[in-house]
């Protein structure tokens, strides 16, 4: 059975312009030891689906699904307390802005140990040992000293490593990474992606990469879901997606990559959308 399985998920938001559907009827499943990438542009609802799973959406959102199970638990009928126990321990999430995800008032060591205390009920010395071990795992040099640093004393890449350490502190079964490298430089991005994938292999986690960057997909994913305006356009394993994309949207997206440029000008997704509009005119 899949680790996380979602059927027909829809998320709507109440706005002053009426109900806005951010996600419409998405099916999704992730296995242990699998890297699933969800690709889409801004407004495609790629983050919203995962926030719905984590129960992190604001009150104005309405979430409906036929089923949503994680590791055998039905996430739809779960109480808030049960969900909080699972979120953070079995499912962990890292975000785009590492600096903003860490509390600037506390040392990174304190924030890491807080998670260990809350979810793993460890005592002081064990926590310290585990924290140092985690920092070593995510490749932070001289972990003993770094634990006492404040977030502003570290670089963006270092902060993202701390976030990853916090995320994997409780050996989660599923790690959700929401644009984990968008705010980072290319060289740092490479290091963080390599780290994520190696941790995923080592711990046998499921990993969901939410990204807009086809390069990141190519470098990490096993399987890919392409999303556009809240709908799933295509789901395929990474090789066949890049080799022979089925959906016209994916094809358009790939040909818009500057490295795939043929001739003087790039082909754009607008061309795709024009075609789509034309098709919609013909077929209902």
């Amino acid at each position: 059975m899949a680790l996380l399985e979602i059927k027909n998920l829809s998320v709507g938001f109440d706005t002053n312009a009426g109900l806005f559907m951010a996600v419409q009827g998405i099916d999704l499943s992730v296995d242990n030891r699998e890297v699933l990438a969800i690709v889409g542009e801004s407004g495609s609802g790629k983050s919203v689906a995962m926030l719905a799973v984590m129960g992190l959406l604001p009150k104005t959102a309405t979430v409906t699904a036929d089923s949503m199970t994680f590791d055998g638990h039905n996430m739809l009928t779960m109480t808030g307390k049960q969900r909080r126990e699972i979120v953070g321990r079995d499912v962990a999430m890292i975000f785009q802005e590492p600096m903003a995800s860490l509390n600037p008032c506390f040392t990174v060591g304190f924030q890491l140990e807080e998670v260990l205390r809350f979810h793993m009920k460890m005592d002081g010395p064990t926590r310290r040992k585990r924290a140092i071990e985690l920092f070593k795992q995510v490749g932070i040099p001289s972990p003993e000293e770094r634990l006492n640093s404040f977030p502003h004393q570290m670089s963006g890449g270092q902060c993202q490593r701390v976030m990853i350490a916090i995320a994997i502190a409780c050996n989660p079964k599923l790690l959700i990474a929401d644009e984990p490298t968008t705010a980072l430089d290319v060289t740092i991005q490479k290091q963080i992606l390599d780290l994520l994938v190696s941790l995923q292999v080592k711990h046998g986690m499921g990993l969901i990469m939410i990204t807009h960057d086809m390069g990141v997909v190519a470098e990490t994913a096993d399987r890919v879901i392409v999303q556009y305006k809240g709908r799933k356009m295509e789901e395929a394993d990474v090789l066949s997606l890049f080799e022979s994309p089925k959906s016209p949207y994916t094809r358009a997206l790939l040909s818009a990559l500057p490295e795939n440029a043929t001739g003087d000008r790039l082909s754009t997704v607008a061309d795709f959308m024009k075609n789509e509009a034309a098709n919609a005119g013909v077929a209902p």
Binding site: T187, K190, V201, L239, L254
Partner: peptide
Amino acid sequence: KTLFAATPKSDVESIRARLAKK
């Protein structure tokens, strides 16, 4: 050179190589 090496490659050969390595 580091910069070039770090840039994600999205051509089919690199993906195939990566998957094989994994």
